[in-house]
Design a protein around this nucleic acid. Structure first.
Length: 423
RNA sequence: GCCCGGAUGGGGUAGAGGUUAUCCUCUGGGACUGUGGAUCCCAGGAGCCGGGUUCGAAUCCCGGUCCGGGCCCCA
């Protein structure tokens, strides 16, 4: 028995700002994309790790850049500890490495898929709770590790059918050009380069007495090939970038050399890369990464690492992939509830790839068929069938039906793919 | 944090101070207790929140919340 209670809405409780609910259809798409990412990362030897949703606030304030810290969801727990919801996963994974994995054979290949939290103004492709898929390759300082990580990111995006641009650079080049410049001014310079505000950049450098460096900075930002880089870029930096590019060619990755790539996080030390895609409004960047050294900040040795993070929600916005639909079978009955439930249980064991559903609303046969009319098949269980020990299989797309025993029924449901073919 | 634009049943909408808020869809029931999608009938369900103006507010004004676009920043 059902009763309708007419309740006046009294200030409906809403989702917190910047968070989302995901209905089944969307979750199926998200899980499908997630599975593809995992599968590819695993095929390169990366294994999943998971770190806590919250960490000590300090983990994120040590070396993540001023701006990130302002966007952290932080709080005191009941013991007075300063904690924070993770705004990203590179620092937690490196903390985990220092805590648990420092004596494991190198390199370590980890991947993660997890939600992160940032207190920001929500926009298209930007939420306060969002998901990142990323990898960290820990322990190698060789160009081949950088090429592998970049190639992996590129492979994943290819597999998802995304149209993107991959830009590869080296933060050491600009840093070398600007060596000797005060930290405060150089970070302003980096910010302007990141924003692409070249007029303001020129103004700042001239007013800071850095006119002698301006030409080199401009040359670095606008370099279209490694040959265009000035002497002050640093020989080692340039040859490293060149080597990574050669290896990317071996992988068959398409990329742009872009020595103006400046990552927001301060901990990057060498090769850096970003991936941009259209269709996301102001949030063009869907992936970013590079080489960094973080472990020593958490009390470990100074281990070189390379990683990337994909903005999962942004990828979902522009990825049209959908999982294959499962065949849906309704076991309906005419006053034979027990028999129908029994049959449904047997079918579920035989046909794990199918969706098998029975009525739980006490409906009569007509109502059941009406309710399940968008399914692929109905198996009808009634007195007639029970007496004969047979079942009626009805193809709901074509309307055709036939009487079968259990074995035949299973074979029919197995052999007809996706319910597109009629029996 | 800043600037714009929005918010009407579960979803999509109409209404531009004046009865009981429109239509579509949806959900439940019935016509029809062993054969669905059609049709018809019945039922259910809404003006984001809080103030103000007014005889009267979904409509006008103010504040807040949330959403969207942009800035800032960032993935």
């Amino acid at each position: 028995m059902r009763q309708r209670v007419s309740h006046k809405k009294q200030g409906k409780l809403e989702r917190p700002r910047g968070t989302r609910d995901f209905l089944p259809e969307e979750m199926e798409k998200r899980r499908h994309v997630e599975r593809i990412m995992r599968k590819i990362a695993e095929s390169y030897g990366y294994r999943e790790v998971c770190t806590p949703t919250f960490e000590h606030l300090e983990l994120f304030t040590i070396k993540s850049g001023e701006q990130i810290v302002e966007e952290i969801y932080s709080f005191k727990d009941k013991g007075g500890r300063d904690l924070a919801l993770r705004p990203e996963l590179t620092a937690p994974v490196m903390r985990m490495f220092v805590n648990e994995c420092s004596v494991m054979p190198r390199p370590l290949r980890f991947y993660y898929f997890a939600n992160c939290f940032r207190y920001e103004r929500p926009q298209k492709g930007r939420y306060r709770e969002f998901w990142q898929f990323g990898v960290e390759l820990i322990g190698s300082d060789e160009p081949e590790s950088e090429a592998e990580v970049i190639a992996l990111a590129s492979r994943i995006l290819d597999e998802l059918g995304i149209d993107y641009e991959l830009h590869v650079g080296h933060v050491g080049i600009l840093r070398n050009v600007l060596r000797g410049v005060e930290d405060e001014i150089s970070s302003k310079i980096f910010r302007l380069i990141d924003k692409g505000q070249l007029d303001e950049l020129r103004e700042l450098m001239l007013s800071s007495g850095l006119e002698s460096l301006y030409n080199d900075v401009e040359a670095v930002i606008q370099a279209e090939s490694l040959e265009d880089l000035p002497e002050s870029a640093g020989k080692e930096n340039v040859s490293r970038l060149k080597r990574v590019c050669e290896l990317l060619d071996v992988y068959g990755v398409k990329y742009y050399v872009d020595t103006g790539v400046v990552r927001g996080l301060d901990y990057y030390t060498g090769i850096v890369f970003e991936v941009y895609a259209e269709g996301l409004g102001a949030q063009k960047q869907i992936c970013g990464g590079g080489s960094y050294r973080l472990a020593h900040l958490f009390g470990g040795e100074d281990v070189p690492s390379t990683g990337f993070a994909i903005g999962f929600d942004r990828v979902m916005e522009i990825c049209g992939l959908k999982p294959a639909e499962k065949r849906r079978v309704a076991v309906v009955h005419a006053n034979q509830l027990e028999e129908a439930v029994k049959l449904a249980e047997r079918l579920r064991r035989e046909l794990p790839e199918c969706v098998i559903v029975t009525d739980v609303m006490g409906r009569n046969l007509r109502k059941q068929l009406s309710h399940f009319s968008d399914f692929d098949f109905a198996v009808i269980v009634g007195k007639k069938e029970v007496e004969k020990g047979l079942y009626t299989l009805k193809d709901l797309k074509s309307g055709k039906q036939e009487e079968l025993d259990f074995e035949e029924l299973v074979n029919r449901l197995k052999s007809t793919r996706q319910g597109t073919q009629s029996i």
